[in-house]
Design a protein around this nucleic acid. Structure first.
Lengths: 201, 201, 201, 201
DNA sequence: TCCTAAGCGAGACGGTACGTCTTGTCTTCCA
DNA sequence: TGGAAGACAAGACGTACCGTCTCGCTTAGGA
């Protein structure tokens, strides 16, 4: 078994922490490898012993952050009974790591990253929500998963950028109302120019 | 009045076209100023006579693309009666410029860009939709606008990445159903773990 | 015709001078490109606009130094009558550039360089001396040329390393006596163990 | 007395052999410590347990090669009667180790090395030749020793680089003729521009 | 129609970051 | 204790872009 040198653990933690701190300070694009290693008190060459480039460090580092989130969710099978809403978990996690999320979701994070997070959430939606929905669904699963993930991230972005004016519970409820009940329930009408004829072909 | 040299028009058009072509070929980040000017048969220094950097050229260039879209929408005031759904217009525009949208929305576009587009759409939503909604709305306007814009972009992304398996009309209807009628209308239930108690404070 | 930017001339001169100064200070191997450009007040990248690496700068720079020497020799054809001894010219040139020669010939210069100089001199010997020697020569021309060049450099090395205890004239005469008259003329004997039987085959 | 671990002997031999093989393959400068230890199947750190750097290993290794040569010469005192020409011994040794000499003398060897070998030979010349020469000598001893050593190395270089077209005996004779009898004996003249007036001061 | 200010091509230059390579030191384990 | 393995700091390498800056050429549009 590959026994990992304890120094490696330490070095990687230093790099991860330095990267996170620097992203929050100046945005992902503006951070250089030199900055990271300076902050971590490591040689620049050492960086390359562990990661191919900035991107790889970021991805590996985020994995550990999101692994935390996934752990709080528990196994998909029993999620709906035991562990409360996974949506709530996302808002809570975002609240606890608000600095990080703020950077990732809007402004300075790389677009690749945003897409990756959305895909990640969409995947979780598929695993957790769909098993408890009726078999018959009028839309393709991945369309739906993508839509729900995108909506969730939009709300989260707005929430963080406006300094979290509501509680995580309230945001969860808002999300539920918007996605499950629909706007019509609240505004009373479907505006006329939204009513279009189904394409006849 | 300072009459603008025709060469300036020409040069800027060449730069814009070169940038667009190159983004489609290799993604925004991978494009360099040198690439752009090579493609446009211009000197690199010439680029800087017109734009501060790649970003500025991109933004200015996209403006012209989206101005096109806005023109098809017509003035907000009469939108709901005359010009059909603005949502449909977005899907149609995305279809007509699918290569461009694909790059912008997923993968290689800069995150800043994505945010800017979302904000742009959110703004249009505010201008066009809200005047025809009831005055009383249970959510903050910008939350709603952001949510609707995010949902629209999510659907558009999914659509383009899956090679547009539906018509623009169908996507518009899907969007309407999801956002206005809500998921509950289709799946019949609001899953139990989504029902949470409003925070009492 | 390629009109060379005057800045280029200036930049190359700065680089050459910086290299020479630094070689004298710390030896060729210890000089880095960064050192050179720092000394020359130029950006490091600028170096690479002009030379592939340190070696190329050195070679190109030495060419200009030795071109100077060759100019004082004049054309080979008339060398023996008009311009005095080319050997003397070498000693004089070495004296005038003693710092440089000291570095090149012993110690810190690269071996490649030493070989190149010897080859250069050997070539000049062929061009200048052989035309005025009798046609019949008992040794191959390049053996002889190499021998004479090597001897000359050996003497020059010794001379410089011992702080030039003789004049350039005296060194020239010494060289002439050793190579043309031979040791036997001065020590009277050919030591017994040097007398070997010609190989009969 | 500290009995030297047999493993140490073995390790050093491996390092020496690896270095020699690699120098022949790619030249001294291009060889790295990593290359050496890879070839020797040793850890890189092990190298530094035994030698300060590449240079030290080289010098120590060459000592053993040249110790061989010195052994064939026997003690200086009786050299002239018993052991044949030391010059011949050099040519023979060079022939037997021609690959090594080729690298050391021309092209890729370090200049420091070349100088060291020349100094080594000059020293032997002083010890072996001068005792059998007349007391009165018109040139400083070290000038002479250096000259003879330089000439010998020049000839050896030429010989090896031209694939040894003559026997070691013939080279020895050539050397004797050139250095002891002088060129004048063969070409008949001392060219006019070599005749210079002694400097009167 | 000329002339003059401008646009432009060409490319040198100072910078900054990159990812790679080598060196020499150190520490931890194994035989 | 000698050696293997390899983490690490240091720092040079050559490359790639960036944005700025001249320098001349050419050319459009006002005199």
């Amino acid at each position: 078994m590959a026994k990992v040198d304890r120094r490696i653990i330490r070095t990687r933690a230093l790099l991860r922490d330095a990267l996170m701190a620097l992203i929050l300070e100046k945005g992902y694009d503006a951070v250089t490898v030199q900055h990271i290693t300076d902050r971590a008190n490591l040689g620049r060459a050492t960086f390359y012993l562990h990661y191919k480039d900035k991107e790889e460090l970021l991805v590996k580092s985020l994995e550990s952050v999101f692994d935390e989130l996934v752990e709080t969710l528990g196994p998909p099978a029993v999620a709906n009974e035991l562990s409360g809403s996974p949506v709530l978990a996302v808002f809570v996690h975002a609240q606890e790591n608000s600095d990080l999320y703020r950077v990732l979701l809007s402004g300075e994070g790389s677009a690749k990253l945003y897409g990756r997070i959305q895909a990640y959430i969409a995947n979780e939606v598929m695993n957790r929500l769909f098993p408890i929905l009726p078999k018959e669904r009028p839309f393709p699963d991945d369309l739906l998963a993508n839509y729900l993930a995108g909506s969730l991230l939009s709300l989260t972005s707005w929430w963080l950028e406006n300094d979290m004016p509501y509680s995580a519970d309230q945001m969860t409820e808002t999300y539920r109302q918007l996605t499950f009940l629909g706007l019509a329930n609240f505004v009373g009408i479907s505006p006329s120019n939204m009513v279009i004829q189904p394409k006849n072909e």
